[in-house]
């Protein structure tokens, strides 16, 4: 009985996070591509259908873990490392040039950004870009999330995403933090 009650409580919070949409309907995928960006291409609004679907790319365990796989498959590591950065900017230092909004991340991946970020819009499906964007957002999250993916079966450069929020991993590195950055994490 207690099991049922606790199970219900946990599940009410969790039923969305466990759903698996293996293949989007083509019209839905089309609509998901139509984000509204601000003129400076930072920030904006996701399409209506994104809310209709129940924001499926932020707290859904399957999508996040697919995003993590795509992060490896599409070579994100070669510039961003495991989030510490490299030739590309870090995700852990609390300073994101284009902000932490999911739409901005989506736009960065789909269209690319100046100074080196290539565009992936012609290499990935809309669904995959959203999954990857959702995962990248969790790397920089200041709070551990239960829906975040766990470690990979490989050498560990950092604790698993579901263990360590970015503020624990924050490392100022050799160069000082960005001048405009307000308080560090």
């Amino acid at each position: 009985m207690a099991g049922v009650l606790i199970g219900l409580a946990a599940a009410l919070a969790g039923c969305q996070r466990e759903e698996r949409q293996l293949r989007l309907d083509p019209p839905v995928a089309d609509a998901l591509d139509k984000i509204a960006l601000m003129p400076n291409r930072i920030g904006g609004a996701p399409p209506e259908v994104y809310f209709k679907l129940g924001k499926p790319y932020e707290a859904n365990a399957y999508n996040l873990s697919q995003g993590k796989r795509l992060y490896t498959w599409f070579g994100c590591k070669s510039c961003h490392g495991d989030g510490q950065g490299g030739s590309g900017p870090a995700f852990l230092d609390g300073w994101w040039y284009y902000g932490p909004e999911l739409v901005s991340i989506f736009a960065s991946i789909r269209d690319g950004r100046p100074h080196g970020m290539p565009m992936f819009g012609d290499k990935m499906t809309t669904d995959q870009i959203w999954q990857l964007a959702g995962y990248v957002q969790t790397i920089g999250s200041y709070e551990g999330q239960t829906a975040a993916p766990s470690r990979n079966d490989e050498k560990q450069a950092r604790p698993a995403e579901n263990r360590a929020p970015a503020k624990l991993l924050f490392d100022e590195g050799p160069s000082p933090v960005h001048l405009d950055q307000g308080p560090t994490p």
């Binding site: 009985m1 207690a2 099991g3 049922v4 199970g7 219900l8 599940a11 969790g14 039923c15 466990e18 759903e19 698996r20």
Partner: peptide
Amino acid sequence: AGGALLWTAFALDM
């Protein structure tokens, strides 16, 4: 409780 856990999870797509 173990049985309830498993079946509740299944009912919730989990």
